[in-house]
Design a binder for these strands. Structure first.
Lengths: 156, 156
DNA sequence: TAATTTAATGCAAATTTATTCATATAATTT
DNA sequence: AAATTATATGAATAAATTTGCATTAAATTA
């Protein structure tokens, strides 16, 4: 149904603010907020959000969210972009964007990005399977995502 | 018995260098190295080592070591690291770290860094004798140095 | 609008992981 | 050294998680 987006959001909020050790616990916390799903759905949600289960020093476990920026549009543009082709993921660190590609594809893709001639992007550096994008100052992450989406959705 | 210490060591080495998605897989990899235990023991070992199970983008899972390896934490500076071997220097510029290596070594070393699977590092780009390391947001220079130290001081 | 495709979800089975209980080995104490 | 205590481990089992299949709702297309 259409609660998914919201549910994912609530899950990240919960995991950010409390120690949850099992999917059943999470299930309870969700139902307290009137979100009723089954544990199976939760398993899929956590997989989607890339939430890891990690042991704590006190002998229990905790579900932990991937570091900060990853959750931008879990379903939106960037899946679109990564679902097909050689671009595997895009993540951000500060002003920079890091694009992961299939091995060997990076320079080819970087060329595409460069030749798009967007003012938003100052330049790129490509390795074998990684591209570093240096955006111009003041350019937002969303703008970059948008740009990448446009750049790569054409050729699908 | 008294193989425990050794076994834990081997487990960390395996997890550091390959993608392991289940305890059964790990079981197999261990027995290839003549270490035969049951899954129960493995579960305890992983708990002890605080190894987390995290979903990957490709739909599978991976066991990842905690990033701050407190078990072996040599506080030796990085000349420890650079004193022998192919890594010549590490310097920082803004958020980025630049590693200088002997000519030709960069990609090999970058591979090691990548396969350490540390959350702190978003990705690396290697040329011939230079590696660019892109740390995740909020990661300090000290953390990177520490990480590099652990990665390269241990076995080599 | 009807037909078709796609996405979300529950249920139940399968798989994976954690734990209980029993036992053996090593370490410590008397 | 014997007795006691602590640690490590396997076998079996329990608990937790993941997945295949079926179904329904939503979106898309004809």
């Amino acid at each position: 149904m259409k609660n998914k987006r919201n549910r994912l959001q609530v899950i990240t909020e919960i995991l950010r603010s409390s120690v949850v050790g099992s999917q059943e616990d999470l299930l309870r916390l969700l139902s307290e907020r009137k979100l009723n799903v089954t544990q199976a759905t939760l398993s899929r949600d956590l997989k989607l959000l890339k939430v890891a289960k990690t042991p704590l020093t006190n002998g229990t476990y905790k579900y932990v969210l991937p570091s900060i920026t990853k959750t931008i549009s879990p379903q939106g543009t960037y899946n679109h972009l990564t679902s097909h082709g050689a671009v595997l993921s895009i993540e951000f660190s500060g002003q920079l964007a890091v694009v992961k590609t299939k091995p060997g594809y990076a320079s080819a893709i970087a060329w595409d990005i460069d030749n798009k001639g967007s003012v938003e992007i100052l330049g790129t550096i490509a390795g074998d399977d990684t591209i570093l994008i240096i955006p111009r100052e003041g350019v937002s992450r969303e703008q970059i995502l948008e740009l990448m989406d446009v750049t790569f959705s054409e050729e699908k």
